[in-house]
Design a protein around this nucleic acid. Sequence first.
DNA 1: TCGTACGCTGTACATTATACAGCGTACGGA
DNA 2: TCCGTACGCTGTATAATGTACAGCGTACGA
Lengths: 260, 260
Amino acid sequence: MTMRAPDVTGGGDPARTLALLWREPSTAARRGPQRGLNLDAVIEAATAVTDTEGLTGLTMRRVAQELRVSPMTLYTYVPGKAELLDVMLDAAYGRMSRADTTGQPWRVRLTAVAEENRTLFETHPWTATVSTLRPPLGPGAIAKYEHELTALDGLGLDDIEMDACLTLLLSFVQANARVAAEARATAQLTTMTDEQWWAAAGPLLARVLDPAAYPLATRVGNAAGTAHGSAHDPAHAYEFGLRRLLDGLATLIERATPAA
Amino acid sequence: MTMRAPDVTGGGDPARTLALLWREPSTAARRGPQRGLNLDAVIEAATAVTDTEGLTGLTMRRVAQELRVSPMTLYTYVPGKAELLDVMLDAAYGRMSRADTTGQPWRVRLTAVAEENRTLFETHPWTATVSTLRPPLGPGAIAKYEHELTALDGLGLDDIEMDACLTLLLSFVQANARVAAEARATAQLTTMTDEQWWAAAGPLLARVLDPAAYPLATRVGNAAGTAHGSAHDPAHAYEFGLRRLLDGLATLIERATPAA
DNA sequence: TCGTACGCTGTACATTATACAGCGTACGGA
DNA sequence: TCCGTACGCTGTATAATGTACAGCGTACGA
C-alpha cells in the first residue's frame, strides 16, 4: 500500500501507534544481534531532516541515510512512515516550554499559550502544516492539552466552551504559521521567493487589469502590498488577528464572569 | 523536474499562468489538425475528478482518462499540473455567488462573505486545502477580492485594516473547512472514519492514561468528545468561532465609526 | 500540390513507500 | 560448551507519479 498523503497524523494503526507513543515494552526475549539504534534516535534524525528540508524532505531513504543505515532497517523500529510522523509530533509537543502563568489575567495567560505554539511552529515549521485532526495521543500531546486548558480554567466557562476557545486560538496560530511555512516551502520548491514571484506577476497583472473595473481591489491590494514587503505579512497578521480574537473572547468571558 | 507539493497555487511560471488565466489569444496561424478539446474542458474534467476523489486523485493520467485522451495530450492545453491547479481555482472563484448586501449592517455583510466562502469549500472541498499564498491572479480571484472588500467599505477602516480584517475572516473560514476536508480525505485514505478511529484509540488511551495526573484534559476531552460525535465538530466550531471573530472585529470597527 | 507547423501519443526515467526473502548473528536451553 | 532458532539488517522488486523526448500523421498556407 502506498502512502498518498503523509501530512496527516493518525494515519497508522491506532494500536501500534499508541504502543509506540507510550513506549510500551516489547515482548521481551531478545535474541539475535544487538539493535544498532533505538526509536528516539530515529525520531531525532527524522526531525532534524524535516526541520531543515521540510515535510517533502521527510523520506524513509533520507532518514536512513542520516543514520547510515539501509532504508528497510527503519521498519524494525517503526511500523511505517505514518506512525513515525505521529511520534515525531508528540515528541515535539513534549519538548515545548510551558510557562506557569497562574494568577495572571486571562489575556496574559492566553497570549502565553499562543506564543508557546508560535515558537513550536517556528522551531519546527513542518508542525504547522500537518493536520492534527487525529492528534498523536501520546504523553507530549496530553501534557500540552492539560497545560493549555489551565489557562482557561476558572473563568466561568463550561467544558465545551473551554475546548472551543482553545481550539479557536490554536487554530488561528496554526493557520498563521502555516502561511509562513508554506511560503518557505514554495520558495524552495520553485526556486523563487514570494517577493520575486510578485515582482514577476505584478506587472503582468497590471497589463490586463482595468483599475476602473476593480477600484477597491487595486487600491487596497496596492496599499497592502507596499505596506508589508510582499502581499502578505504573517507577523502583522498575527498581531492583528490575536488582538481581534482576544477581544472576541473577552465578550464571552466577561459575560461568564461579570465580576472580572 | 518532478512536482513534490502540487497543493500550492502559483507553482508555475507566472507569465504562462497569467496568460492562461486571462485567456490571452495564442499566436494565431493555426496549422495542423483541429484541436479536440479546449482549456475549459480540461478545467471542467479536472475539477470533476478532484471534487469526487480529492487532491490526491488529481493526476494527469486520471484527467486524461476522463477526457478519453492520452496523458501527454493535456500538455498541449496546459503547461503542467501546477498551472492547471491555478486555473481550476480561479474558475471556481469565478463561479461563486456574490450576494449584494449594500446597505445592510456590517455583521450581516461579513456573515454573507463567510457563508459564500463556506459554500465554496463545501462544493469543492479541495479548495480548502490548497495554499493560496500566491493567489491565482485571474478574473475570478480579482472579482472575488473586489466583492469581499465592498463588505468592509465605508466602515472607517483604512486600507491596511480592511485587508487585514478580510484576511482574518477568510483565514478562519478556510481553516475550519480544511478540517472537514481533511477528515474526509483521511477517512478515504485509511478506510476508517474519525469515529471509528476514536472508538479504537480511546479505550487504548484510557488504559495508559492516569486521569489524576491530567484532570482537566480528561474531563474537558471527554465532555467535548461526547457532546459532538467525534472529538471535533466543524459545524459547531464554525458557529462559535465566527461569533467570537465578529465580536472581536466589532471592537475595532465601533472605535473607527463612533456614530454607528 | 506540397512542405511544414502542430496535435496527439508511446516510451522512458527518476522518485516514492514498502512487501518479501535471504543472510548472518548471538542468545537460550541442553 | 554448543547449536538451533529468533531476530536485526539489507537487496531486490513493484506500482504510482509528473513530464521530457521523439515520432507520426494531419490539414492549412503558399
